[in-house]
């Protein structure tokens, strides 16, 4: 089992990092031939950074469009961010003061995350329009994330596991050593689901995470009259003339 999980995590990390790197490269190399920011848009680069920051940190556009989705989505994403930070303690030794400080918040965040996911999932059943646009994978994605959240919370509150051994396992992986994992169904389930999530990340709608940074309607400066913007393939039309 230890070896299986070790291989699984190496593989999942490889797919996550390699897949995302490829996708980001793919987004970056594809030109945006025309200026299409959704206006009113910032007229300077710092303005665009600010717009993007508001979008990524506060989900500004979503806030404007639907408060329910915003509230549940925000709960989930902020929760997830804190939970991820809390989990850093499995990968660093010793645990620094900042990391130690956020530990309790990470626990609350776990509940917020699952609650947010629950709200989003409920909408997929209760709101006819969202039911209409949901695919099986949309449901499974939520199930997967809730599964990860619940198994994590379960190990915190219901059936403790030996987290010192878990930490030794991951620290070992980082040095290419295979240490034992606790033989605990919660650990296997939790880690298995996490690995699955990592594997499907670069081939699923989770690509919205890098995607938002590349969205031309949000990341372009509104200055088409002041500076000429031409994509390489379009510039060829000019020289052909």
């Amino acid at each position: 089992m230890n070896v299986i999980f070790a291989i699984l995590f190496y593989l999942a990390t490889l797919i996550l990092v390699g897949g995302l790197a490829y996708k980001i490269y793919d987004f970056a190399r594809t030109p945006a031939p025309l200026k299409i920011p959704t206006t009113p848009a910032p007229t300077t680069a710092p303005g665009v950074v600010l717009r993007m920051a508001r979008e990524v940190i506060f989900f500004e556009s979503l806030f404007k469009s639907n408060l329910w989705i915003w509230a549940f989505g925000y709960m989930f994403h902020v929760g997830l961010a804190l939970v991820l930070m809390r989990h850093l303690r499995y990968f660093v030794d010793p645990v620094g003061p900042i990391l130690a400080f956020i530990q309790p918040f990470g626990v609350y965040a776990g509940f917020a995350m699952v609650a947010g996911l629950g709200g989003l999932w409920a909408r997929r059943f209760l709101v006819a329009r969202i039911r209409y646009i949901s695919t099986p994978s949309d449901h499974l994605m939520l199930a997967l994330l809730i599964g990860i959240g619940l198994t994590g919370l379960g190990m915190k509150f219901l059936m403790h596991t030996d987290i010192v051994t878990v930490k030794a396992f991951f620290l070992g992986l980082m040095r290419f050593e295979i240490n034992p994992l606790p033989a605990h169904p919660g650990v296997y389930l939790h880690l298995g689901l996490v690995a699955l999530l990592m594997i499907i990340f670069p081939i699923s709608k989770l690509l919205h995470a890098p995607g938002v940074f590349f969205s031309p309607t949000r990341n372009q400066v509104d200055n088409p009259r002041e500076a000429r913007h031409v994509a390489p393939w379009a510039a060829q039309l000019d020289s052909g003339k």
């Binding site: 639907n66 969202i130 949901s134 949309d138 690509l207 919205h208």
Partner: peptide, 12 residues
């Protein structure tokens, strides 16, 4: 390309 990959069907 980005729009094809990024939609999460949130319904907004």
């Amino acid at each position: 390309k980005v729009f094809m990959d990024s939609c999460v069907h949130c319904g907004a």
